[in-house]
Amino acid sequence: MREVFLPRTLDELWDLLHRRPEAAIYAGGTDVLVKLRAGLITASGLICLERIQELKGVRDQGDEVYIGAATTHRTLLADPVIQEHFPILIQALNVLGSPPIRNMGTIGGNLVTASPAGDTLPPLYVLDAEVEVRWGDGAKRLPLSQFILGPGKTSLGPGQLLTGVRLRKSADYNVHHFEKVGQRKALAIAIVSLAAVLQVSDSGRIEKARLAWGSVGPTVIRSVEVESALEGRIISRDTLTKAAALAQTAVSPIDDIRAGEAYRRTVAGNLLLRLINYAR
């Protein structure tokens, strides 16, 4: 039998982490408990974060919004601040897993799992999210892109916890576009996903573009070349086709059971053509 702990405060948690450094940590359980069943986790103890209020909820802090790591996807979807300022995150959360998965799973869990297919990752990358990492007597803030190191790998050290995500509000973008290609419309793991935020002028010119792809590399892929190929140009089939070709060279997908490398590469580019829908 494994011991299960439900600390109620971060102080309790630090103490637990000190006493039981080998324990596996989970919040929603939608990833860790699946791995536990599959025998991929052998820790003798489990620490569940769901009762730590400090880790939950959305705080509007003026220029910034702070999201507690153990905030469920469902809570985020219903949050008016997130809805108003980060519609691209809402779009991604809407197609994450399924309703019960969204009721249980948390944003912190999605990040710590660090799957290249994690649905919240591409939007958080284009939003230049920062994460807050804390430990017993310290804390730091770092860009998400420095937190996630590879498939399933983060920069979290022993005794450290991802406690929150910080997003800067920005009025720069008037196009918020997320598309996920999966094998079905729900309960799907992304084969390719694209998050794009654009500032498009009244004349249809892309003034600013931030793009990120999921599931086509060891982590989320960003490409300055593609962004540059779009910025300053009118949204047109021609512009997007050229950018798509660049995107196809920027990504580094693999073959797996869900799709082949070539398909992922092609579609990573093709998804840019969907932006034609925003042409003026």
Partner: peptide, 23 residues
């Protein structure tokens, strides 16, 4: 359904994709 050299690659409901209500 994928089988490679007699071994099932789509071994569960996460990899063998049946329709949901949305599909």
């Amino acid at each position: 359904f994928r089988v490679t050299d007699g071994l099932i690659q789509t071994s569960d409901l996460a990899t063998y994709i049946i329709p949901t209500a949305m599909d």
